[in-house]
Design a protein around this nucleic acid. Sequence first.
DNA 1: GTCTATAGCGTGATAGAC
DNA 2: GTCTATCACGCTATAGAC
Lengths: 204, 204
Amino acid sequence: MKRSYHHGDLRQAILDATLDIIDSDGLDAVSLRAVARALRVSEAAPYHHFASKQDLLAVLAANAYAAFGQHLAEAISAAGPDPYERLRALVQAYVRYGLESRGRYRLMFGEHMLELATYPAVVAAGRPTRLILEESVAACVGPGRSDSVGLENTVWALAHGITSLVGEAEIPTGSNADAIDRLSEVAASVLIGGIRAHVQAGLC
Amino acid sequence: MKRSYHHGDLRQAILDATLDIIDSDGLDAVSLRAVARALRVSEAAPYHHFASKQDLLAVLAANAYAAFGQHLAEAISAAGPDPYERLRALVQAYVRYGLESRGRYRLMFGEHMLELATYPAVVAAGRPTRLILEESVAACVGPGRSDSVGLENTVWALAHGITSLVGEAEIPTGSNADAIDRLSEVAASVLIGGIRAHVQAGLC
DNA sequence: GTCTATAGCGTGATAGAC
DNA sequence: GTCTATCACGCTATAGAC
């Protein structure tokens, strides 16, 4: 019986269906009614598994961090031993992923996160991803340096800024992957040069 | 007669009331019905002056660029003659304004701009603001350099990234203005160091 | 414990009367 | 130029069937 969602299958089916909608039609296309329709279930059914649309998105956002973090970690590993080259690869991979999976990226870092920031589970799930950022920056500035949280946030903000502005078509690239890579490349170079100078000046 | 909106007063009243809502309750609080209620006018009345909510927001977004650009220009002027110090002031002013006027900032650079990017008037209105960015970067790299569009976008992305992440509480600052300024300061320093290195390497 | 049916309310948008 | 319906659709809560 395909539609026997009793015994807990519906919860996972809702998560899967919502992710499908996010990937195919974008984050804004998500509505609990659309999810219910896709699963041929009543409009109220999802509410027995998620108290609100926000709760559902919070779970999905928490899940999404794992895939994102793993993607970044792999890109860093493939970049070799030099910490600055690894940082460059991190920025490049961050932007690429954010634009190729725009729905999921917005799910994790979009404007609705102001409300989702109140979910401890979401915040906790995002921590490993930020740890990758921290480690990447720490590897550049060297051990024993004083806190480099400002640098980490700078790296993050730059990667997020490119992803957002290109994703919103404010920086026009015509979805040209090469143009996006070039922009990431320039940004990463500036970042690396800036961090080098910052470290040499003993500001960190 | 206070409520004689005939003869075109209503259009301006709608623009004013919407901006009031954006400033006081945020961009998400805007609805044409709320605007109509505030003006004690029927729910359908706004539609005779703006074909859709998007059209209304597009007009406001176009208007908002002027104030933002002027704010940035003033901050740059007050920073003295050194182009790098002016760039630092630009970043600082950008982030401050974006967070102090978060509703207006999202109106100009938020996620809904993907749709508004199709409005030629909006794109045109945003150009002067981007010109300020271009000139600020050009003043650093010096005249006669080849195109520095990558650097401009890098500066913009960093400023936008900080504004977004702090605004969405992803980078926690507790609305502490000093913490925000410190972050902008570090980011601007990295940016300046990176651009200097970029220029010295002859990459621009 | 799981799902359906229904209803309340807010929103964007349109048609036709004044 | 404005108003009074009216429709379609979204989120959410509640009552009740199984």
